[in-house]
C-alpha cells in the first residue's frame, strides 16, 4: 500500500524542528531513519499530516564519551554503534545489541533515537537502556529535561515523550573494568524482534561472590522488565552454576509474559529461564576473564 498524504518539512536546526513540532503537535511525526515509521505509514497504521525530517540536523549524530557515561545522539545509526571502537571498549553491550537489529540494510539507516522512541518492548535498545540505567534527553521549545529509563518506557509503543518534545540524545553508563556482561535472545528468524531477550551485568568480589548485578528481560511485558528484587537478593551469593540455575528459574516464575500467536506464555517462560541463564553465564565468564587479565 501507499502512505496517505502529508506535508513534508526539513528543518536544518533543532530549534526549527521544535518550532514546527510546537505548531503541529499530535498531527506531526518526527522521522529519523524511518525503518519503523515508514512501514506503518505504508500500511496506513500511521497517517501524520506533517512529517518533520530531522536527518539534516548535524548535532544529533555524535557519540561522546563522558566521565562514566556515553552520550549517543538520537540520529546515530545502528551500524555506527555496531562498528564503534570506543563503544566496544567503554560499553560493549551496545554494539552487541546493535549488530542484532533487523538486517544489514536496516541497520545502515535505522537510528538509536528512533528505536527508543518507538519503544517496542522486545527491541534491543530499550532492553539495553533499561540495563544500563539510561537517561533520555528530551527537548522542547520550553527547554530540556532528562528522563530515566524506568520512567521513559510507559507501555507498548508508548514513552514519556510529550507531543512537542524530541528525543535528542541518550546517556548510558559505561562498564567498569570489574564488570562482565551477557546478552542472549531468541527469535524464529534472523532479523525478527526477539520472542524473549535477556541481558545482565555482573561484578564479582571475595572469590566469586556477586558484588553488583543488573538483570533485564524483554518480550515479557509492556516494557523491558528490570529484575530489581532478584538483583537485591543476589548480592553476596556465590556465582556458581547452581546459583545461575536458581536465579533463572526464580525469574521465570516471577515474570508474567503474555501469550500470542508467536509464542505461548508458557513457552516464553521457558525462554526466560534459558536465556537469562545464558546471559548470566556470559557475564560471569567475562567478569572472570577481565579479573584474570
Amino acid at each position: 500500500m501507499k502512505p496517505a498524504k502529508f506535508e513534508y518539512h526539513k528543518p536544518e536546526t533543532l530549534d526549527e524542528a521544535l518550532t514546527l513540532l510546537a505548531e503541529y503537535g499530535d498531527e506531526a511525526r518526527v522521522i529519523a531513519g524511518g525503518q519503523s515509521l515508514v512501514p506503518m505509514m505504508n500500511i496506513r497504521l500511521a497517517r501524520p499530516d506533517h512529517l518533520i525530517d530531522i536527518n539534516g540536523i548535524d548535532d544529533l549524530s555524535q557519540i561522546r564519551l563522558e566521565n562514566g557515561s556515553v552520550a549517543i545522539g538520537a540520529l546515530v545509526r545502528h551500524r555506527e554503534i555496531e562498528h564503534s571502537a570506543q563503544l566496544a571498549q567503554a560499553c560493549p553491550p551496545l554494539p552487541a545489541a546493535a549488530c542484532n537489529i533487523g538486517h544489514y540494510a536496516l541497520r545502515a539507516r535505522g537510528t538509536i533515537g528512533g528505536s527508543l522512541a518507538l519503544a517496542d518492548p522486545a527491541a534491543e535498545f530499550p532492553l539495553m537502556a533499561t540495563l544500563l540505567d539510561a537517561e533520555f534527553v528530551a527537548r522542547s521549545g520550553a527547554g530540556e529535561r532528562s528522563v530515566p529509563s524506568h520512567e521513559f518506557f510507559v507501555s507498548v509503543f508508548t514513552t514519556a515523550l510529550e507531543p512537542e518534545e524530541i528525543l535528542t540524545a541518550v546517556r548510558f553508563r559505561t562498564l567498569a573494568q570489574s564488570e562482565g556482561w551477557g546478552f542472549r535472545w531468541f527469535s524464529r528468524r534472523v532479523g525478527d524482534y526477539a520472542l524473549v531477550n535477556a541481558a545482565a551485568i555482573v561484578a564479582l568480589k571475595d572469590e566469586g561472590r556477586i558484588h553488583r548485578i543488573a538483570m533485564v528481560l524483554g518480550g515479557v511485558g509492556a516494557t523491558p522488565v528490570r529484575l530489581t528484587g532478584l538483583e537485591q537478593e543476589s548480592v553476596g551469593a556465590e556465582a556458581s552454576a547452581g546459583w545461575v540455575r536458581e536465579i533463572s528459574s526464580a525469574a521465570a516464575a516471577r515474570v508474567e509474559p503474555g501469550g500470542d500467536k508467536h509464542a505461548s506464555a508458557e513457552y516464553r517462560r521457558e525462554l526466560v529461564e534459558l536465556l537469562l541463564a545464558g546471559a548470566l553465564e556470559d557475564a560471569i565468564d567475562r567478569c572472570r576473564g577481565r579479573q584474570a587479565a
Partner: peptide
Amino acid sequence: PARACLIF
C-alpha cells in the same frame, strides 16, 4: 544499502 520502499 537502503530499502527504497522505506524512504520518501
